[in-house]
């Protein structure tokens, strides 16, 4: 492992300055992904800045009625929060569906969306990877593609984003509070992550030295009727093949509002705007759910692979969307 300095500031401005002034520096949160990358040689920073004391570990109430979740809140503490459990089942379920109890006690709400792809070619420094080593090529194309993208991929990168939490935050239109050397700004959560295009080395729209200080959740009363459904190769402690975060609001026999985001299918949490458009104002019928899912996946481009490829994901994603909507409207359909 390459030697690095370690700073543990108690102030966010200082943490930002330490990283912004040093191109070789990186923020360290819970460390569940980055420390592993230090061992694997995937990440080789010369300086680490621990931000777990520099950002808030509290959940506070915003004037509009939504909570502000400090970046240093541990995933486990978030799932224990009674208000979050009552008001945002899809978010709490997304966190509970990820990793293990030990990892959730370490990982932070601010760091979780910034974890990097689990593409095995990205994590194996002996194979080419445009995300790890821009211009080196993509080892995943034509390789094992079971966990890779069916939406929004490019010739340069077919990796998927591994976070469950990020899928739920995309569905509810959370807001990311970011501190940089020039001050604070906010980013709609759906604009935090990017598609790979020709720059897959950039997972997000954050600049070097920009620090997530908190995630703001909108009041969004409809989130009480929501869920996170994750399909994986084993019952627990595995990344998603496909996941769906969904919330729905019914008015009489019509869907008045709906939020859907998909995980495991793209380089970013995939907000299903097309499916939502089909569903808004419609009756909650099984065939409408199927039409909505088909609309969202119309542009899906499954990959070939030595493992048989990932063509199954298009069907799986459609069925998971339908199943999630069915669960959410149980009793409301006749």
């Amino acid at each position: 492992m390459k030697p690095f300095t370690l700073a543990t500031p108690t102030d966010a401005d200082e943490a930002v300055r330490l990283v912004a002034d040093d191109p070789d520096a990186a923020f360290l949160g819970g460390g569940t992904n980055l420390v592993d990358h230090l061992k694997l040689g995937v990440a080789t920073p010369g300086a680490l800045v621990d931000i777990t004391r520099a950002t808030s570990a509290e959940i506070t109430d915003l004037p509009d009625g939504g909570p502000r979740v400090g970046a240093a809140v541990r995933n486990g503490d978030f799932t224990a929060d009674r208000r979050a459990r009552e008001r945002y089942p899809l978010i709490v379920q997304s966190v509970l569906a990820g990793a293990s109890g030990q990892l959730r006690n370490m990982a932070t709400i601010g760091g979780n969306p910034l974890q990097r792809t689990r593409c095995v070619y990205f994590q194996d420094v002996t194979t080419p990877c445009n995300k790890r080593e821009p211009g080196s090529g993509c080892g995943a194309h034509g390789g094992y593609t079971r966990y890779h993208a069916i939406l929004g991929a490019s010739e340069h990168c077919i990796a998927t984003h591994p976070s469950d939490l990020a899928v739920a935050l995309a569905a509810v239109d959370a807001t990311v509070r970011v501190l940089g050397a020039d001050g604070e700004r906010t980013i709609p959560f759906t604009d935090l992550h990017r598609l790979p295009g020709d720059a897959p080395e950039r997972d997000t729209t954050l600049a070097h030295g920009e620090l997530i200080t908190a995630i703001d959740l909108p009041a969004l009363p409809m989130a009480r009727r929501s869920l996170y459904r994750k399909v994986r190769d084993r019952a627990s402690y595995a990344f998603a093949l496909v996941s769906v975060a969904a919330a729905i609001e019914l008015d009489g026999d019509r869907i008045s509002d709906v939020r859907i985001a998909l995980g495991g299918v793209a380089h970013k949490p995939w907000r299903a705007h097309r499916a939502e458009a089909v569903l808004r104002g419609a009756r909650p019928l099984e065939e409408t759910f199927e039409t909505a899912a088909a609309a969202e996946l119309a542009d899906a481009r499954p990959l070939d692979g030595v493992d048989g490829g990932n063509g199954f994901k298009t069907t799986l994603a459609a069925r998971t969307i339908v199943a999630a909507l069915r669960d959410l409207t149980e009793g409301a359909r006749s």
């Binding site: 360290l28 569940t32 420390v35 592993d36 694997l40 680490l48 486990g76 030990q102 006690n105 370490m106």
Partner: peptide, 22 residues
């Protein structure tokens, strides 16, 4: 690498993976 749990200890009372803590 944080995948097996054999290194689990209690850190200030919480279970964590000692192999991923600096």
């Amino acid at each position: 690498h944080g995948q097996c749990g054999a290194c689990t200890v209690l850190l200030d009372g919480r279970r964590v993976l000692a192999c991923l803590v600096l």
